[in-house]
Design a protein around this nucleic acid. Structure first.
Length: 674
RNA sequence: GCUGCUGUAGCUCAGUGGUAGAGCACACCCUUGGUAAGGGUGAGGCCGAGAGUUCAAUCCUCUCCAGCAGCACCA
C-alpha cells in the first residue's frame, strides 16, 4: 500500500500501481468523467499511469485550464501527425509541441509529395476529425532505446531514430500508441496525453498555416514542413481566439499606417520608411519628449558620422563579427561614361578602400570620448544620440516598420568606472520605467541575455559583466516574476551581455525595445581610458543603452497598442473643424487659427459635403476631436465638440473653454502637473 | 537567406487563352444639408519584370523582383 495526499490535505491509502483514473472513480463517477490527467508530486501525468510510491496527488480537469489546454494541444498535435501519416504514409514525423495558442507539427514529406500547402489543410482537418471520432485510446509504453531506434529505422523514420539515439541516458523513453491492434499508430513522446482521442473537441481546433522550419531550429539542417494549428477545449474558446486574431489584424500598424497616412514603404527602398507628414509629427513629438527626458537625466547629445572607414570597423570588431549585417561602400568616385560612348568601364572598380554605413553608434561615441584626456572626475559621461543606423537584414526578416534596415535609435553610451556601474544601471532601469509608464505601457518584462558563442573578451570579463547586470536589476527591485525576469543563455551581443526590456502591448504581445549592455570589450579594443584618482590610466566600462529602441519599431508598437487612437499629445491631427454650411467657412478658418495659436494641431474641413459624411470620415481617420460649426456656432462664437470614442453627446462650448480643455490634454506627460 | 502563398486602377478586390471590371478615393456639375456614406457625370490600368509555349498570353511554364505567413536572424 502507498499513501497519496490530496490537495485538501487528506490522505488515502491505495494499492501500489493504482492509477489516477481509479482514484477518480473511487471519489465519484462525475469526477471520473471529468478527470483528464493528474499531478503526482507536481508532475503532470496520464490518467492511466500507475502510481508506485507515496505522493502528493491532484486530479486535473478542464477547470485547470492551463494544464487542460496544454494536454489538449499536445493531443491535437499528435492527432495531426497521425492524420498526415494516414494520408501520406511516406511522410516522416519529427516532433510537434503545444504553443501559446495551439500546436504545430514538423514533417519531412517525401520528395514526390513536397512541402504541404494551405490547400492540404482542410483534407488533414477532416482526417483529424475522423481520428477524434474513432475515440482511439492513447496508451503510454516504455521502450528500450535499442528497440526504439530499430522501430524507427524499420519505418524509415530517420529523424525519430536520430532523436531516439540522442535522448539523454537518464530519460525514460516512452511511446504513445494511438488505437489498438496491428495498425495502431505510434509516436515517441514524453507525454502526458489524454486517455483517448475522443476527449478532444472536434470543433475546437483549426489548422491555420504552413511554413518551413529547420530541423532542430538550425539553419544548417534540412528544412521541414511545419503545419500550425490553434486548439482549444471547446468551440467557444476557438471562436474567441479567432476573434482576437481579427482584432489584432485590425491593429496592424501597416494597415493603420496607410489608413492614417502616416508612412509608406516601397521596394526601391525596402526596409526603409518614407515618413509622411502625419507620421513624422508623431516621431517629432516622441523625439522631443525623449530629448527632454535625457536632458533632465544628465545626458549630453551628440551627432556622429554615417560613413566610416572599414579600418575603424575592423578595430571595433564589427568587421569581424558583424560584417554580414553591414552596408559596405567603396571609397571611390563612380565612373560616368560619356553620353553615347561605347564604354564598358565598370561603375565601380572595387579596388578602393571600403567604408561602411554605421550599424551602431558605439564606436563613434568612443571616438568622441577619446578626444582629450578624461579624468575620473568626468565620469559618468552620458553621451546620447538619435543615431540613424543601417543594418543589412535578411530580406525575410523585414516586417513593416517593426523590422527595417534603416532606423534611428534613442541611443546613448554611458562611460563609467567599475564602482559606478551598478547604480548607473539601476538609474537607467528607473528612467526606462518612468518613460514606459508615461507612454502608456503598464507592463514589460526584463531578460538578461548571456554570452553568445561568437564573442570577444575573456570569460572572466563576461562573468563579471553578467553578474553586475544581475546585481543592478536586483538593486532596482525588478528581478521578480512580475517583470518576467529570466536569463537567456547565448543571446548576448558579441561585445557584451545585455538586459532586454520587452513591452507588452494592449493585446498581450511582446516586443523587445529597450536594452542596456555592460561592455568592457569595445573600450579595450578602441583604447578608451580615463585617469583615475591614483594618476594611472584605467579602462571605463561602457554601457550601451536605449529605451525606445528605435523610433521605427516603437512608433509601430504605439500604433498597434493604441489601434491608431493616440493619446492627444501624440495624435498627428488633434482637431478637425468641420463646417455644416459654407456660410460657416470663414468662422471655421478663424477657429483653426486660434487653435494653432494655442499650439493645437488643427485642420478645417470646409468641403462641400454633408456633416454626416464628415463625421464618418474623420471618425474612421481616428481624429480625436471633431469641432462642428454651423450657422448657430458662427453667430454665437461657440463650437460643438465631438470626441472620438466618447459615448457622451457633443458638448457646445465657447472657443476659450474648448482651447483650455484641449490644451491641457495635449500636454506631453512629462510636462503635466508639478 | 530557407519553405509556402500572393502580385489586376491611389485603396480593397472580381475576372478571362482573343490586350479588362466593381466599390471606395479623385475631378467636375447639381445639392447648403445639424452628427458615421445626398445625386449625377468623368478621368484613371505595359494586369510586378523578363523569357518561353501558342496563330494569340494578364491568364499556361520557367527565371527574377517585391509583398505576406512562418523558420533562421534581430532593435
Amino acid at each position: 500500500m502507498i499513501t497519496i495526499t490530496l490537495p485538501d490535505g487528506s490522505a488515502r491509502e491505495v494499492e501500489s500501481g493504482t492509477t489516477p483514473a481509479d482514484i477518480a472513480a473511487a471519489i465519484g463517477p462525475g469526477l471520473a468523467k471529468a478527470a483528464l490527467a493528474a499531478r503526482v508530486d507536481g508532475e503532470l501525468v496520464d490518467i492511466g499511469r500507475p502510481i508506485e510510491a507515496d505522493a502528493a496527488f491532484a486530479l486535473v480537469t478542464s477547470r485547470d485550464e492551463k494544464d487542460a489546454l496544454e494536454l489538449a494541444r499536445h493531443d491535437y498535435a499528435h492527432v495531426l501527425a497521425e492524420a498526415v501519416q494516414a494520408l501520406w504514409p511516406d511522410t516522416q514525423i519529427t516532433f510537434g509541441p503545444a504553443t501559446d495558442d495551439g500546436f504545430y507539427y514538423d514533417f519531412a514529406p517525401s520528395a514526390q509529395r513536397g512541402p504541404f500547402t494551405e490547400d492540404d489543410l482542410p483534407v488533414i482537418e477532416d482526417k483529424m476529425r475522423e481520428i477524434i471520432a474513432a475515440d482511439q485510446p492513447l496508451v503510454r509504453e516504455v521502450w528500450s532505446r535499442a528497440d526504439l531506434i530499430a522501430r524507427w529505422q524499420a519505418k524509415g523514420e530517420s529523424f525519430k531514430a536520430e532523436w531516439a539515439a540522442e535522448l539523454p541516458d537518464n530519460e525514460t523513453l516512452t511511446v504513445y500508441r494511438s488505437g489498438t491492434g496491428e495498425d495502431a499508430w505510434l509516436d515517441m513522446c514524453r507525454g502526458p496525453h489524454l486517455a483517448s482521442t475522443g476527449r478532444l473537441d472536434p470543433k475546437a481546433f483549426k489548422l491555420t498555416k504552413v511554413a518551413g522550419a529547420y530541423w532542430r531550429g538550425d539553419q544548417n539542417n534540412p528544412q521541414l514542413s511545419r503545419i500550425y494549428g490553434t486548439g482549444w477545449l471547446d468551440k467557444k474558446q476557438l471562436a474567441a481566439h479567432l476573434m482576437r486574431l481579427e482584432e489584432a489584424a485590425k491593429r496592424d500598424h501597416r494597415k493603420i499606417g496607410q489608413e492614417m497616412d502616416l508612412f509608406h514603404l516601397q521596394h526601391e527602398a525596402q526596409g526603409s520608411v518614407f515618413w509622411h507628414p502625419k507620421g513624422y509629427l508623431i516621431w517629432r513629438e516622441l523625439e522631443a519628449y525623449m530629448r527632454r527626458k535625457l536632458d533632465a537625466a544628465g545626458y549630453d547629445e551628440v551627432k556622429t558620422p554615417q560613413l566610416m572607414d572599414a579600418k575603424q570597423w575592423e578595430q571595433s570588431g564589427h568587421w569581424g563579427k558583424y560584417r554580414e549585417n553591414m552596408f559596405v561602400v567603396p571609397d571611390e568616385i563612380p565612373h560616368v561614361p560619356e553620353e553615347g560612348a561605347d564604354d564598358d568601364t565598370p561603375v565601380i572598380t572595387g579596388d578602393a578602400d571600403m567604408m561602411a554605413l554605421k550599424p551602431m553608434n558605439c564606436p563613434a561615441h568612443i571616438l568622441i570620448f577619446k578626444q582629450g584626456i578624461k579624468s575620473y572626475r568626468d565620469l559618468p559621461v552620458r553621451m546620447a544620440e538619435f543615431g540613424c543606423c543601417h543594418r543589412n537584414e535578411p530580406h525575410g526578416a523585414l516586417h513593416g516598420i517593426l523590422r527595417v534596415r534603416q532606423f534611428t535609435q534613442d541611443d546613448a553610451h554611458i562611460f563609467v568606472t567599475e564602482d559606478q556601474l551598478i547604480e548607473e544601471v539601476r538609474d537607467f532601469c528607473d528612467l526606462l520605467d518612468e518613460v514606459y509608464h508615461e507612454l502608456g505601457f503598464d507592463s514589460y518584462a526584463i531578460k538578461l541575455a548571456l554570452r553568445p558563442d561568437a564573442r570577444y573578451g575573456s570569460d572572466a570579463e563576461w562573468d563579471r559583466a553578467e553578474q553586475q547586470l544581475r546585481d543592478a536589476v536586483k538593486l532596482a527591485g525588478r528581478d521578480t516574476d512580475e517583470y518576467g525576469w529570466e536569463e537567456l543563455p547565448g543571446e548576448g551581443a558579441f561585445y557584451a551581455p545585455k538586459l532586454e526590456f520587452h513591452l507588452s502591448d494592449a493585446i498581450g504581445r511582446t516586443w523587445q525595445v529597450g536594452t542596456i549592455q555592460a561592455d568592457t570589450v569595445l573600450p579595450e579594443r578602441l583604447d578608451a581610458s580615463y585617469v583615475g584618482e591614483d594618476g594611472e590610466r584605467h579602462r571605463p566600462v561602457m554601457l550601451h543603452r536605449a529605451i525606445l529602441g528605435t523610433f521605427e519599431r516603437f512608433i509601430g508598437i504605439l500604433i498597434e497598442h493604441h489601434a491608431g487612437r493616440f493619446p492627444l499629445w501624440l495624435a498627428p491631427v488633434q482637431a478637425v473643424v468641420a463646417t455644416i454650411v459654407s456660410d460657416a467657412d470663414d468662422y471655421a478658418d478663424e477657429v483653426v487659427a486660434k487653435l494653432k495659436a494655442a499650439g493645437i494641431r488643427a485642420e478645417a474641413d470646409t468641403r462641400n459635403e454633408k456633416i454626416n459624411y464628415k463625421v464618418r470620415e474623420h471618425s474612421l481617420a481616428k481624429v480625436p476631436n471633431l469641432l462642428v460649426v454651423g450657422k448657430r456656432e458662427a453667430e454665437q462664437g461657440t463650437i460643438a465638440l465631438r470626441r472620438l470614442g466618447s459615448d457622451e453627446h457633443q458638448k457646445v462650448m465657447t472657443l476659450d473653454e474648448m482651447i483650455a480643455t484641449l490644451r491641457d490634454e495635449a500636454t506631453p506627460p512629462d510636462r503635466k502637473g508639478g
